[in-house]
Design a protein around this nucleic acid. Structure first.
Lengths: 208, 208
DNA sequence: TAGATTGTTAATCGATTAACAATC
DNA sequence: TAGATTGTTAATCGATTAACAATC
């Protein structure tokens, strides 16, 4: 009844990109085979956990040998829907927004920021990294009928919830939120938060 | 035997800053009392979980009434060691590093970047947001005997592990790592990673 | 074949939730 | 007092780990 996606724990899914990242490193080092033990070694997880995680999607290894690096990479990219380019729209072209526009790590991993929006009249119309900043007022015009389903929010905290509501109405399905607020949105929309202050506050507990 | 800190699950600690964030919002709205139910409502957690989390540290509420917002805020700040200013050093003054140097959210929450380091001769000596960029070569000179225990890494992936090793040798105890690699460090050093690509890759699984 | 490592089951561990007595 | 909500126990749920047969 429920499709397979619902059955696989989110915590498993969140580890797959880490495996992918490590496998890319391993590939660069020229290894063609890797055991779950080796893969686990530097990732802070156990070999058993890697095998268990992967077994949710099938058997990718060979007993006695381990995993073919290239094949496992391809399989993980398939599972995570990474065999395509994902377009994203950026909201808020301040310091952080501009840094993200300049970040080369997105495009090399298949994520491309194709539009940028800001409220500041000084910024609207300006071209940054090949992208012309548009007014947030015009968001619906260009985006709602487009194939862009990922939004990156780097607006001030006070504006984030209202913007997020508009994005959901517009049809965005995934939001990467850098604003320091917890967004309240329908559960069919995926939201992930990046807030360095929360992370530092957590670490502070263990200091001193 | 074991001190209390070891006994409280890390997952509990990681939720406390979120409660803190919400309580600050609630305080601004002028509320003086809040129930676990209300607090939970917009945080995607249950009221029971909030009460359970808090009960690790004592009883902060009053039956029939809820929690005094100001008192709970103060208690959480005490628990998380946030009643002081934490100094941090930044490594890597590229786009992202400069955005972090400009970010006002750190100082308003008690985190202050007091030093910045880069390898680029063009950047060394330059002053950004009141901080003079120093050469990474000189890191040990200024930092190892200092009270700065938090490092923020925004250098390229290939340089992060070697830098982190030096930081640990130097006496840093917490590392906020923006480089897209998993750092391997002694377990007494707290490491947190922020990598938007991993987050986007996870969300991609649920798209389409 | 002998050695190594997977994929999977069962056991363990730990976190979340439900329920409710205590009490404001 | 009556109603509300905490703090906590016990039950449930889910994730991790240990163990090992299968098999390369």
């Amino acid at each position: 009844m429920a499709n397979q996606k619902n059955e696989i724990p989110e915590i498993v899914i969140s580890r797959l990109p880490i495996y992918l990242q490590k496998l890319n490193q391993v590939l660069k080092e020229g290894k063609t085979l890797i055991s779950s033990q080796e893969l686990a070694y530097h990732l802070g997880v156990t070999a058993t956990q890697i095998r268990k995680d992967l077994s949710n999607f099938g058997g990718f290894g060979k007993q006695g040998l381990g995993y073919n690096v290239v094949k496992l990479l391809e399989s993980l990219r398939d599972i995570l829907n990474l065999n395509r380019i994902w377009k994203a729209a950026l909201f808020g072209v301040g310091n952080l927004g501009q840094a993200l526009l300049s970040y080369k790590g997105f495009s090399s991993k298949g994520f491309e920021i194709v539009a940028a929006f800001d409220n500041d009249p000084q910024l609207v119309g300006k071209e940054i990294k090949g992208i012309t900043v548009q007014s947030v007022d015009d968001m619906e015009k260009g985006m709602c009928a487009s194939e862009v389903k990922i939004a990156i929010i780097t607006v001030p905290a006070g504006q984030a919830q209202a913007l997020a509501n508009r994005l959901v109405d517009c049809g965005f399905k995934a939001i990467l939120n850098y604003a320091p607020v917890t967004l309240v949105l329908p559960e069919e929309v995926k939201v992930s938060n990046i807030d360095p202050v929360l992370v530092l506050q957590k670490m502070a507990y263990y200091l001193d």
